[in-house]
Simulated assay, not measured.
Amino acid sequence: MTSLSVNINKIATLRNARGGENPNVVNVAKDCERFGAQGITIHPRPDERHITKKDVYDLAPIVTTEFNIEGYPDERFLELIEENKPAQATLVPDPPGVLTSNAGWDTIKHHDFLKDVIAQLKSMGVRTSIFIGTEPKLIEYAARIGTDRIELYTEPYAANYAKDREKAVDPFVKAADIAQKVGLGINAGHDLSLENLKFLKESIPFMDEVSIGHALICDALYYGLENTIQLYLRELREEGSKK
Protein backbone atom coordinates (compact mmCIF):
# COMPACT_ATOMS: atom_id res chain seq x y z
CA MET A 1 0.00 0.00 0.00
CA THR A 2 1.16 3.52 -0.77
CA SER A 3 1.77 5.42 2.46
CA LEU A 4 0.11 8.73 3.26
CA SER A 5 2.37 11.37 4.78
CA VAL A 6 0.43 14.40 5.99
CA ASN A 7 2.17 17.73 5.45
CA ILE A 8 1.27 19.90 8.46
CA ASN A 9 2.75 23.19 7.21
CA LYS A 10 -0.72 24.74 6.95
CA ILE A 11 -1.42 23.98 10.60
CA ALA A 12 1.64 26.05 11.50
CA THR A 13 0.51 28.81 9.12
CA LEU A 14 -2.82 29.05 10.96
CA ARG A 15 -1.09 29.09 14.34
CA ASN A 16 1.37 31.78 13.25
CA ALA A 17 -1.47 34.03 12.08
CA ARG A 18 -2.36 34.71 15.73
CA GLY A 19 0.74 33.63 17.60
CA GLY A 20 0.56 31.34 20.58
CA GLU A 21 0.03 27.59 20.25
CA ASN A 22 -3.46 27.23 18.77
CA PRO A 23 -3.65 25.01 16.80
CA ASN A 24 -0.85 23.05 18.41
CA VAL A 25 1.42 21.55 15.76
CA VAL A 26 2.67 18.72 17.96
CA ASN A 27 -0.84 17.68 18.97
CA VAL A 28 -2.04 17.77 15.36
CA ALA A 29 0.87 15.54 14.31
CA LYS A 30 -0.03 13.05 17.04
CA ASP A 31 -3.67 13.13 15.96
CA CYS A 32 -2.78 12.57 12.28
CA GLU A 33 -0.88 9.45 13.30
CA ARG A 34 -3.69 8.32 15.59
CA PHE A 35 -6.16 8.77 12.73
CA GLY A 36 -4.12 6.52 10.43
CA ALA A 37 -1.51 8.65 8.65
CA GLN A 38 1.69 6.70 8.05
CA GLY A 39 3.94 9.75 8.09
CA ILE A 40 4.32 13.43 8.96
CA THR A 41 5.95 15.89 6.55
CA ILE A 42 7.23 19.37 7.35
CA HIS A 43 9.09 22.02 5.36
CA PRO A 44 10.95 24.39 7.70
CA ARG A 45 11.67 27.37 5.46
CA PRO A 46 14.29 29.96 6.48
CA ASP A 47 11.66 32.71 6.99
CA GLU A 48 9.67 30.41 9.33
CA ARG A 49 6.40 31.47 7.73
CA HIS A 50 4.88 28.18 8.82
CA ILE A 51 7.06 25.46 10.40
CA THR A 52 9.68 26.97 12.71
CA LYS A 53 13.04 25.62 13.81
CA LYS A 54 11.52 25.02 17.26
CA ASP A 55 8.76 22.93 15.66
CA VAL A 56 11.34 20.62 14.14
CA TYR A 57 12.91 19.91 17.52
CA ASP A 58 9.49 19.56 19.18
CA LEU A 59 8.22 17.11 16.56
CA ALA A 60 11.28 14.88 16.17
CA PRO A 61 10.87 13.00 19.49
CA ILE A 62 7.11 12.51 19.22
CA VAL A 63 6.57 11.37 15.62
CA THR A 64 6.28 7.59 15.76
CA THR A 65 5.53 7.03 12.06
CA GLU A 66 7.81 8.22 9.26
CA PHE A 67 9.15 11.73 9.89
CA ASN A 68 9.93 13.49 6.59
CA ILE A 69 11.69 16.86 6.56
CA GLU A 70 11.85 18.61 3.23
CA GLY A 71 13.76 21.69 2.19
CA TYR A 72 16.61 23.24 0.26
CA PRO A 73 19.84 21.55 1.38
CA ASP A 74 21.79 24.50 2.74
CA GLU A 75 23.85 24.40 5.95
CA ARG A 76 20.83 25.25 8.09
CA PHE A 77 18.80 22.37 6.64
CA LEU A 78 21.63 19.86 6.98
CA GLU A 79 22.09 20.86 10.61
CA LEU A 80 18.39 20.26 11.30
CA ILE A 81 18.63 16.82 9.70
CA GLU A 82 21.77 15.87 11.58
CA GLU A 83 20.36 16.92 14.95
CA ASN A 84 16.87 15.45 14.50
CA LYS A 85 17.51 12.34 12.37
CA PRO A 86 14.20 12.05 10.49
CA ALA A 87 13.44 8.85 8.60
CA GLN A 88 13.61 10.78 5.33
CA ALA A 89 15.03 14.04 4.01
CA THR A 90 13.39 15.32 0.83
CA LEU A 91 15.51 17.80 -1.10
CA VAL A 92 13.75 20.58 -3.00
CA PRO A 93 15.41 23.19 -5.24
CA ASP A 94 13.49 26.16 -3.82
CA PRO A 95 15.35 29.40 -3.25
CA PRO A 96 14.39 31.02 0.10
CA GLY A 97 11.66 33.41 -1.15
CA VAL A 98 9.58 30.99 -3.21
CA LEU A 99 5.94 30.66 -2.06
CA THR A 100 5.73 26.92 -2.69
CA SER A 101 7.76 24.24 -4.45
CA ASN A 102 7.16 24.72 -8.17
CA ALA A 103 9.86 22.75 -10.00
CA GLY A 104 12.06 19.71 -9.68
CA TRP A 105 15.83 19.38 -9.58
CA ASP A 106 17.99 19.49 -12.68
CA THR A 107 20.05 16.46 -11.66
CA ILE A 108 22.52 16.96 -14.49
CA LYS A 109 23.30 20.61 -13.74
CA HIS A 110 23.42 20.02 -9.98
CA HIS A 111 24.93 16.53 -10.14
CA ASP A 112 28.03 17.19 -8.02
CA PHE A 113 26.20 19.30 -5.43
CA LEU A 114 23.43 16.75 -4.93
CA LYS A 115 25.81 13.81 -4.87
CA ASP A 116 27.79 15.45 -2.06
CA VAL A 117 24.68 16.37 -0.05
CA ILE A 118 23.17 12.90 -0.42
CA ALA A 119 26.42 11.32 0.73
CA GLN A 120 26.30 13.52 3.84
CA LEU A 121 22.69 12.56 4.57
CA LYS A 122 23.39 8.88 4.13
CA SER A 123 26.30 9.14 6.56
CA MET A 124 23.72 10.39 9.08
CA GLY A 125 21.59 7.29 8.48
CA VAL A 126 18.78 9.24 6.79
CA ARG A 127 16.93 8.05 3.69
CA THR A 128 17.02 10.57 0.84
CA SER A 129 14.46 11.67 -1.71
CA ILE A 130 14.69 14.45 -4.28
CA PHE A 131 11.88 16.50 -5.80
CA ILE A 132 11.90 15.97 -9.56
CA GLY A 133 9.91 16.30 -12.78
CA THR A 134 9.23 13.60 -15.34
CA GLU A 135 12.13 14.04 -17.78
CA PRO A 136 13.67 10.57 -18.22
CA LYS A 137 17.28 11.72 -18.37
CA LEU A 138 16.96 13.62 -15.09
CA ILE A 139 15.53 10.53 -13.39
CA GLU A 140 18.40 8.42 -14.68
CA TYR A 141 20.84 10.96 -13.26
CA ALA A 142 18.95 10.90 -9.96
CA ALA A 143 19.99 7.26 -9.63
CA ARG A 144 23.61 8.19 -10.39
CA ILE A 145 23.78 10.74 -7.57
CA GLY A 146 22.82 8.08 -5.05
CA THR A 147 19.39 9.14 -3.85
CA ASP A 148 17.15 6.41 -2.44
CA ARG A 149 13.92 7.82 -3.84
CA ILE A 150 12.49 10.53 -6.04
CA GLU A 151 9.38 12.57 -5.30
CA LEU A 152 7.50 13.24 -8.51
CA TYR A 153 6.32 16.86 -8.73
CA THR A 154 2.65 16.28 -9.55
CA GLU A 155 1.35 19.82 -10.08
CA PRO A 156 1.21 19.37 -13.91
CA TYR A 157 -0.82 16.19 -13.40
CA ALA A 158 -3.24 17.92 -11.04
CA ALA A 159 -3.58 20.97 -13.30
CA ASN A 160 -4.52 18.88 -16.33
CA TYR A 161 -6.47 16.10 -14.61
CA ALA A 162 -9.93 17.53 -15.30
CA LYS A 163 -9.20 18.09 -18.98
CA ASP A 164 -7.74 14.69 -19.85
CA ARG A 165 -6.64 12.50 -16.98
CA GLU A 166 -5.08 9.82 -19.20
CA LYS A 167 -2.92 12.39 -20.97
CA ALA A 168 -2.12 14.11 -17.67
CA VAL A 169 -0.87 10.97 -15.97
CA ASP A 170 1.02 9.47 -18.91
CA PRO A 171 4.39 11.22 -18.35
CA PHE A 172 4.24 10.29 -14.66
CA VAL A 173 3.63 6.63 -15.45
CA LYS A 174 6.58 6.62 -17.83
CA ALA A 175 8.76 8.44 -15.29
CA ALA A 176 7.81 5.98 -12.54
CA ASP A 177 8.62 3.02 -14.80
CA ILE A 178 12.08 4.46 -15.47
CA ALA A 179 12.63 5.13 -11.77
CA GLN A 180 11.67 1.57 -10.90
CA LYS A 181 14.02 0.18 -13.55
CA VAL A 182 16.99 2.16 -12.20
CA GLY A 183 16.25 1.08 -8.63
CA LEU A 184 14.68 4.22 -7.18
CA GLY A 185 11.78 4.34 -4.74
CA ILE A 186 8.91 6.57 -5.84
CA ASN A 187 7.13 9.24 -3.81
CA ALA A 188 4.76 11.86 -5.20
CA GLY A 189 3.43 15.21 -4.07
CA HIS A 190 2.04 18.65 -4.89
CA ASP A 191 -1.61 19.49 -5.52
CA LEU A 192 -2.80 15.93 -4.96
CA SER A 193 -6.38 15.81 -3.71
CA LEU A 194 -9.41 13.60 -3.19
CA GLU A 195 -10.33 14.36 -6.81
CA ASN A 196 -7.14 13.14 -8.47
CA LEU A 197 -5.36 10.85 -6.00
CA LYS A 198 -7.08 7.56 -6.73
CA PHE A 199 -6.35 7.67 -10.46
CA LEU A 200 -2.68 8.43 -9.84
CA LYS A 201 -2.50 5.48 -7.45
CA GLU A 202 -4.22 3.19 -9.94
CA SER A 203 -1.83 4.34 -12.68
CA ILE A 204 1.30 3.92 -10.52
CA PRO A 205 0.32 1.19 -8.03
CA PHE A 206 3.91 0.72 -6.80
CA MET A 207 4.32 4.24 -5.42
CA ASP A 208 5.90 4.16 -1.98
CA GLU A 209 4.42 7.36 -0.56
CA VAL A 210 2.40 10.47 -1.25
CA SER A 211 2.86 13.68 0.70
CA ILE A 212 -0.29 15.81 0.91
CA GLY A 213 -0.87 19.01 2.84
CA HIS A 214 -2.84 21.88 1.37
CA ALA A 215 -5.81 19.96 -0.06
CA LEU A 216 -6.02 17.63 2.92
CA ILE A 217 -6.10 20.46 5.46
CA CYS A 218 -8.67 22.33 3.37
CA ASP A 219 -10.86 19.22 3.24
CA ALA A 220 -10.50 18.84 7.00
CA LEU A 221 -12.27 22.18 7.48
CA TYR A 222 -15.41 20.55 6.10
CA TYR A 223 -15.03 16.86 6.93
CA GLY A 224 -12.93 16.96 10.11
CA LEU A 225 -9.33 15.80 10.32
CA GLU A 226 -9.98 12.19 11.28
CA ASN A 227 -12.58 11.63 8.59
CA THR A 228 -10.46 13.40 5.97
CA ILE A 229 -7.42 11.22 6.64
CA GLN A 230 -9.61 8.15 6.32
CA LEU A 231 -10.96 9.44 3.01
CA TYR A 232 -7.44 9.88 1.64
CA LEU A 233 -6.37 6.46 2.89
CA ARG A 234 -9.38 4.96 1.14
CA GLU A 235 -8.24 6.48 -2.16
CA LEU A 236 -4.83 4.83 -1.69
CA ARG A 237 -6.09 1.44 -0.63
CA GLU A 238 -5.66 -1.49 -2.99
CA GLU A 239 -8.99 -2.64 -4.40
CA GLY A 240 -8.52 -6.14 -3.08
CA SER A 241 -7.86 -4.95 0.46
CA LYS A 242 -10.90 -2.69 0.84
CA LYS A 243 -13.17 -3.66 3.68
Rank of each mutant, 00 (worst) to 15 (best):
I145N: 10
N24K: 04
G133P: 03
F113G: 05
N187P: 07
T128D: 13
G97Y: 10
F77K: 08
D177K: 05
D170P: 02
C218R: 05
E75A: 15
I229R: 12
I69F: 12
V63C: 05
V28S: 02
P96V: 09
P61Y: 00
N102I: 04
E82Y: 11
V26C: 08
H43W: 01
A29T: 03
D219C: 00
I108P: 08
A158N: 08
L184N: 09
R45Y: 03
D58H: 02
K242D: 03
F113D: 06
D148C: 10
D191I: 10
V25P: 09
R49Y: 08
S3L: 10
Q180N: 01
I145V: 15
A179T: 00
K181H: 07
E226R: 14
S129F: 07
T65D: 05
A87W: 04
G125T: 06
Q230P: 09
F206V: 03
G146P: 01
K115R: 13
D177G: 00
R45C: 05
E202R: 15
D208Y: 03
Y232K: 04
S129T: 12
A17L: 06
K109E: 15
N27T: 07
A220N: 04
P44D: 09
Y223R: 10
D148G: 11
E166N: 15
T154L: 10
R149A: 15
V117D: 12
E75H: 11
L121K: 13
G224D: 07
K122C: 07
A142Q: 01
S3F: 02
E226Q: 13
E135R: 07
Y157D: 06
T100E: 12
L121E: 14
P61R: 01
L14T: 13
G240Q: 02
G185Q: 13
F113M: 11
L231F: 11
Y222R: 01
N102S: 04
E155K: 15
N27M: 11
S241C: 01
R165I: 05
E238D: 14
P171W: 06
Q120R: 15
M1C: 13
I204A: 11
L194C: 09
K201L: 02
S193I: 02
Q38N: 13
V98E: 13
G146C: 00
I132G: 12
V98I: 14
Y141F: 11
A176C: 00
I8K: 03
I204V: 15
L236Y: 08
